[in-house]
Amino acid sequence: MSVLVFAETSEGKFKKSAFEVTSYGKKVAEQLGTNVVVLAINANDAKLLHKYGAEKVLIVNNPSLKFNAKVVADIIKQAAEKESSTVIVVDSNANGLYVAPIAAVNLNAGYASNVLGLPSSTSPFTLKRKAFSSKASNFTQINTAIKVLSLSKNSFGLVENEVSGVVEEFSPAIVESNLTSVSIEQTSGKVTIADADIVVSGGRGLKGPENWGMVEELASVLGAATACSKPVSDLGWRPHSEHVGQTGKPVASNLYIAIGISGAIQHLAGINSSKVKVVINTDAEAPFFKAADYGIVGDAFEVVPKLVEKLKEFKANNA
C-alpha cells in the first residue's frame, strides 16, 4: 500500500501546488499507516519534495516528453501499480484536472474532485469537497479499492515535514496518443489566477478598459494576478481568461480584492474559497459587503491610486 502524489512541474520547476499535494499526501499516508510516493516528470530538483514529507520520489527523466493528458495518466497508472498505491492525489491546476478522470478510469477508481481537506474517515473513505460552486460542501464516499482525488488549491497549505527520502529513476512505457500539441501561447510574465496568492479584480464599476492601469499597478505592487467580473469580459474590456465566478475561473487565493464589483451571487460563488476578501465600492449597500472581511465605501478612482501609493511605501519599509 502507498499514497501516490503527482507533483507537477513547469519548465523543470515544481509548481507551488506540487508542494501542497505532497504535504497533503504525506498526511493521508500517515492516516492510513503507510508511505507517500511522489511522481514527478522532468523535475530539476526532486530533493525539494523531501522537505514536505516525500519519503520516495519517482522521477521520470525524458526531455522529449511534453504534457499529454493520456500519456501522463498512463504514467500515473504505471507508477500506482508499481507502488501498490491505493490513493492517488493530483492538484487542481489545468493539467491535474485534465489527467485525474483519465487516470481514475485507467485504475478503475472512484474519483473525488475539489477535495477540501484530509479524509474525515478512512473506512469508508470519505472526503469533504466543494459543491454548488462553493455555496456548500459535500461529503463524498469513495467505494472502490483505488481512489483518485484532486485537492482544491490552497485548501491544505504547505506543511514542512523534512524526511530523508530517496529519489528513484522511473522509466515508464509511453503510450501512443494521436492528440498532438501544436503550440502553446503563454501570457508571459504575468502571475496567473491559478498560481496567485493575491488576486486583484475589477468590475463594471471601473467604467471602461482604459481604467485598468491602476488595477494592474495595484496587482504589480502586491505580486498579484488580475481578474474581472463576467460583464467586464463579456464587454471585451478584459480577456476571458480573467473572468472569475461561477461560470468563470474559481479563485482560492489568500487575498481577493474586489474593486467596483457588486457581489452578485454568481460572482461570489467563484471567489468564496478565498481566505480574505476586501471590497472597494461606492455603494455601501452592495451585496459584496456581506461577503467581504474588509471594506472601503468609496470611489475606486480615489481609493485605488492612494492604496497603490501607500502600499509602495509599506513594501519599501517592510522589504
Binding site: T140, Y294, G295
Partner: peptide
C-alpha cells in the same frame, strides 16, 4: 464508484469591517 453522504453549508461569516482609509486597511491586512 462514489456516493454522496451529506452536505454542509459554510459557517456564517463575521461582519465586514468597514475601514475609512487605506492606511488602516494596509495595517489590518498586515
Amino acid at each position: 464508484a462514489t456516493s454522496s453522504v451529506s452536505f454542509e453549508k459554510p459557517a456564517a461569516k463575521s461582519a465586514c469591517k468597514i475601514v475609512d482609509n487605506v492606511d488602516e486597511l494596509i495595517s489590518l491586512l498586515h
